[in-house]
Measured scan of single mutants.
Amino acid sequence: NQASVVANQLIPINTALTLVMMRSEVVTPVGIPAKDIPRLVSMQVNRAVPLGTTLMPDMVKGYA
């Protein structure tokens, strides 16, 4: 199973992502692939993302 990107903490709306905010985990449904973590750094979330939430492409500005 492919690992997805999961929030390692509460990420407030419009926050630029950093490595410490994200972890990889095998979850259902599948979200953004963990291999894309380096690409996500500095991108902003367009909503508040609670701890443990799988990041989906529509949550990150400029990803999709």
Rank of each mutant, 00 (worst) to 15 (best):
N8C: 11
E25I: 03
V60I: 14
R47C: 07
N46V: 09
G31V: 02
N46G: 12
Y63C: 06
N14C: 13
P57Q: 14
K35C: 15
A7H: 01
V45N: 03
I37K: 05
M56C: 15
R47H: 15
N8G: 12
S4W: 02
Y63K: 03
T53F: 10
T54S: 04
T53K: 07
V60Y: 00
I11D: 01
V30Q: 12
V20I: 10
T18V: 05
V26S: 11
V49K: 00
G31K: 01
Q2K: 03
P12C: 14
L19W: 06
V6T: 07
V30N: 13
A3L: 12
T15H: 08
L55K: 00
D36W: 03
M21F: 05
R39M: 14
I13K: 06
T28M: 07
V45K: 00
S4K: 01
T54Y: 02
T54D: 01
P12D: 13
L17Y: 00
A34W: 13
P33L: 14
E25C: 13
Q9G: 05
P38S: 13
N1L: 15
P29A: 06
A3G: 08
A7W: 01
I32E: 01
V5S: 03
K61D: 12
S24A: 10
V27Q: 09
V5L: 03
L51Q: 12
P50N: 12
N8Q: 13
M22G: 01
N8W: 05
M56I: 08
M59D: 13
G62A: 12
P12L: 07
T53M: 13
Q44P: 11
L40I: 13
T54F: 02
I32G: 01
N46H: 10
I13T: 12
A7S: 07
G31R: 00
G62N: 12
L55H: 01
I13D: 13
N14Q: 08
T53N: 11
L55G: 02
V26L: 12
Q9A: 11
V26T: 11
T54V: 10
P57M: 05
R39E: 10
D36H: 06
P38T: 08
A48S: 14
K35D: 15
E25D: 09
A64D: 13
I13E: 14
I37E: 03
I37V: 12
P33V: 08
A7I: 06
N1R: 03
A34F: 07
M43T: 05
L55C: 02
V49W: 02
P50C: 13
K35R: 07
T28E: 15
V30L: 11
M22S: 00
L10W: 06
I32Y: 01
L55M: 12
P38N: 12
P50F: 11
M43N: 06
M22P: 00
P29C: 13
R23T: 06
D58R: 04
L17C: 02
M59S: 07
V27K: 06
L51V: 13
S42C: 15
N46P: 03
Q2D: 15
P38I: 10
S4T: 04
